[in-house]
């Protein structure tokens, strides 16, 4: 690891102040991704600001009947919180589909949003990568790209966002609360992460001096008809090739509301409002789900090794919507896909 200064933030205002004072500083909490990136030489912070002692570890009801999750709530505590298990089982399931118990014990809610792609070339400092070194080129487009994106890519970057939790948060219309020098703001989840475009070095729209303080969930949790299906090279402890979060509200066999978010296929959790609205009013049957899947993948583009992902995503979307409609969500313990 490179040598860095280390300091603790005493409160949120102090954290913002310390960050604003050092352009090379980074916040550290769980450290599960950042420490690894420092070891690899991908991140070279001048200072780490330890935020683990800030009072951001609570989970509270909001005035509108939703939940506010403090940025420092560990992933495991969030997954197993009774309110999450009961009211937001899609989020519970997605968190448990990711990482390992040890990492979930360390990783925080806010940090999960800020983890970086696991593109091999991003990690390999001997190869060009526009995300790591803007303007150097993308090694993945003509390289080994089995894990890479099929939606929303650019000629500069085809990396994917690695999080499972964020796929569920996108489907649930969560909001991100952040505090910076200009005060607090609330960011819709869909506007938090970015597509690569010609600036793939920026994963999110968070400003340099801002710190995530909480995630807010709206009251609606889709606890009856939901499923999180993650397809990967081994059954546990691996990043997604394709992941699908589906949440439905069904009335008399017709879909009243549909939420569909994909992981492992784009630079951000992929929501498609057009495909969702096409499902509204449609019967909750396979034919509707096939149409929705075709719609989501209408502009999908692959790069050789990841050609299989388009058909895999199509089938995974249909299967996950079917599981949601049937009220038989994918188990993250028993891995058989039914």
């Amino acid at each position: 690891m490179n040598n860095f200064e280390f300091s603790r933030a005493s409160d949120v205002a102090d954290a913002v102040r310390q960050m604003a004072a050092d352009p090379g500083a980074k916040f550290v909490a769980g450290g599960t991704n950042l420490i690894d990136l420092i070891k690899e030489g991908v991140a070279r912070p001048s200072r780490l600001i330890d935020i683990t002692r800030l009072p951001l570890g609570r989970l509270d009801e909001t005035g509108d009947g939703g939940l506010r999750i403090g940025a420092l709530v560990p992933n495991s505590d969030l997954a197993y919180h009774p309110q999450i298990e009961k009211r937001y089982p899609l989020l519970h399931s997605a968190i448990l589909a990711g990482a390992s118990p040890q990492l979930r014990n360390m990783a925080t809610t806010g940090g999960n949003l800020l983890q970086r792609t696991r593109c091999f070339y991003f990690y390999d400092t001997t190869t060009p990568c526009n995300k790591r070194e803007p303007g150097s080129g993308c090694s993945a487009i003509d390289g080994l790209n089995r894990m890479h994106a099929i939606l929303g890519t650019s000629e500069h970057c085809i990396a994917t966002h690695p999080s499972d939790m964020c796929v569920a948060l996108a489907a649930l219309d969560a909001r991100v609360l952040a505090t910076g020098r200009d005060g607090e703001r609330s960011i819709a989840f869909a506007d938090f992460h970015r597509l690569p475009g010609d600036t793939p070095q920026f994963d999110t729209n968070l400003k340099k001096d801002e710190i995530i303080t909480a995630i807010e969930l709206p009251p609606k949790g889709f606890a009856t008809n939901y499923s999180y299906l993650k397809i990967r090279d081994r059954l546990s402890y691996a990043f997604a090739l394709v992941a699908v979060a589906a949440a439905l509200e069904i009335e008399n066999g017709a879909i009243k509301e549909a939420r569909l978010a994909l992981g492992g296929v784009a630079h951000k959790p992929w929501r498609d409002r057009q495909a969702e609205s096409q499902l509204h009013g449609a019967p909750a049957i396979r034919e509707s789900f096939v149409r929705a899947a075709d719609n989501v993948l209408r502009d999908a583009r692959s790069f050789g090794h990841n050609d299989f992902k388009i058909e895999l995503a199509r089938r995974a979307i249909v299967r996950t919507l079917t599981q949601a409609a049937n009220g038989t969500p994918q188990s993250q313990g028993d891995k058989r896909i039914r």
Binding site: G31, T32, I35, D36, K39, S100, Q102, L103, N105, M106
Partner: peptide, 23 residues
């Protein structure tokens, strides 16, 4: 040494974690 194998697992305040990714 990258949080992928679990050989470094210890208990901190009773919870299992990867000590290789902990400062």
């Amino acid at each position: 040494d990258h949080g992928q194998c679990g050989a470094c697992t210890v208990l901190v305040d009773g919870r299992r974690i990867n000590s290789c990714l902990t400062l």
